[in-house]
Simulated scan of single mutants.
Amino acid sequence: MFEATLLFLFMFLIAACAFLPSMLFPAKSPQQFDATGDFGSNSGLGVSEDSTLQQNFLMHLQNEIESALFPRPTDSILQRHYDALVNAELENRLAAMPDS
């Protein structure tokens, strides 16, 4: 009886190790920006070069905005306000850019 219980626990441990990472970190589908700068649906098979360039530009612009602000707060509520401030400034800068 003891060997059967030990075998069951060993098998359970192996199964938990095998499936725990996929339960904790589910696979996410790649996302891409649409023309407005928001995440859109993934219509193609992969991320095109243009959307990658757009994403890099938006990340650069966001880093530029964050570097001019105070450090990111550690409190969760203040982090939400900080993110809203950064997003509002990002939208303002994108709206002020000429369309090409």
Rank of each mutant, 00 (worst) to 15 (best):
L69Q: 09
L45A: 09
P21K: 10
L6F: 10
Q62H: 04
H60L: 08
A88Q: 13
A95R: 12
D34N: 15
L20H: 03
K28E: 10
A16I: 11
L58T: 03
I65A: 00
D38I: 00
R72E: 02
E89N: 12
A96V: 05
F12M: 13
L58Q: 14
V86P: 00
S51Q: 14
N56W: 08
A68E: 15
R72Y: 00
A4N: 07
A27L: 05
Q79Y: 05
L94P: 02
S100P: 08
G37T: 01
S67E: 14
H60P: 00
N63F: 05
D34Q: 03
N42A: 05
Q54T: 06
L6S: 09
N42Q: 11
S29I: 03
L61V: 10
L94E: 11
L53N: 13
L24S: 03
S43I: 04
A16E: 06
N87Q: 15
S48R: 07
D34G: 02
G40T: 01
M1L: 12
Y82S: 02
D34H: 00
E49Y: 06
L45N: 11
M97I: 08
M1W: 07
L24P: 00
C17K: 04
E3N: 06
M97T: 09
G40N: 01
S76T: 11
I77D: 14
L90R: 08
G46K: 05
